[in-house]
Design a protein around this nucleic acid. Structure first.
Lengths: 197, 197
DNA sequence: GATAATTTTCCATTATTATGGAAATTGCGG
DNA sequence: CCGCAATTTCCATAATAATGGAAAATTATC
């Protein structure tokens, strides 16, 4: 907690220094533009205080940036962000209904969500018997092409192209394509811990 | 200047109150989660003080939101249920680069992820300066049409239709459309606590 | 309605922010 | 190098943030 606190003050310090330097403002000049004292700006830039929201806003205004951007920092950390190429995305076709599922998200990346693309044939119907779970699983169905009917328990929804339905997997669910064309939709699934594939 | 200052305090007040109410936290519970005193939270929620950056960050962490979002205006739309119809999905066009963003996910639904659709013009280029965060934010970029170049720090990726790139928002990021057609891609953003829009 | 439990606000105190003047440091030109 | 101007940091002080205990207010339960 204490480490995080000083990290924020340092981030703000670096950011304000960078912004001021880029504009070639002296502390005095910025003090004049912002209405924050020279001394306070100096303290902020050395990370020796935690400025209040009002002081931050004054500074942002004087520097001509948004308040939120004062918290941005140039940090250089490596991240393993693997890519899933389309050709390598595993897909699976349900023999009974004919619907096609493709796992879009890169496998092996520890993130709390994954994207699945579904091609749902005309007239197709699939039901899932799911009940309340100890740990909530969230799902959003976003129609990319066509239309789809989704029934959650006793609720019935008609989704058209571009529509998005958010739900939890906590009751029986049925998908039905009432049209004469294949419907394509994305399913984004998330839970509160990283999902791995 | 004084009017602006109290406006910020009021904005923060409303926002914190809203976020806390949505989670049904008492002041005491949030104090425990955030490490900020009950009294201070009460003062903040009544707009009677200007909290320091460190206190704001602690609050954001306890509420499971980003620091920057504490400055957002309170969502004024009514909670519309689990569906976001395409026609109602808010969109925004960046005047500089021309890229178009649409929030796909239903607003007001407390789920840990959200979907954003982006139309990126030919030759367009956008850079984001983001830094390490107290709480990780996960992102997956899935190309629906066209191609996009994504540069993460010093890593460069060419994504083609159907490809998906997973990353964390912890370093400078640049998007560039090298083609002569609009690229359409989805961004799925998730954190480990419910996101609300 | 009465009472208990919970939540919020008040209060006194400590800690920290924020300030303007002055001292120290830095930069520049001769 | 020196002198001087510009800039930054130090210093003392006032103002405000931030706290935990207690009082007041609100909510829940019977």
């Amino acid at each position: 907690m204490e480490i995080a606190a000083s990290d924020l003050s340092r981030r703000i310090a670096e950011r304000v220094r960078e912004l001021r330097g880029a504009r070639r403002f002296s502390l005095d000049a910025l003090a004049g533009k912002s209405g924050v004292s020279r001394s306070m700006i100096s303290l902020i830039e050395r990370g020796e205080c935690s400025p209040t929201a009002v002081v931050l806003e004054k500074l942002a205004t004087g520097l001509g940036v948004t308040l939120a951007s004062l918290f941005d920092a140039v940090a250089s950390q490596s991240v393993s962000g693997p890519i899933a190429r389309r050709a390598e995305q595993p897909q699976w076709q349900d023999p009974a209904s004919g619907y096609l599922r493709r796992n879009v998200s890169p496998p092996g990346v520890a993130q709390p969500m994954r994207i699945v693309e579904v091609h749902f044939p005309p007239g197709g119907r699939v039901a899932f018997e799911t009940g309340a779970r100890a740990r909530p699983v969230y799902q959003q169905v976003w129609v990319l092409e066509g239309a789809i009917d989704v029934t959650l328990g006793v609720e019935h929804h008609r989704l058209r192209e571009g529509d998005c339905l958010a739900m939890e997997l906590d009751r029986p669910t049925m998908f039905h394509n009432p049209t004469r064309k294949t419907t394509r939709y994305a399913v984004v699934i998330a839970s509160e811990t990283p999902l791995k594939q």
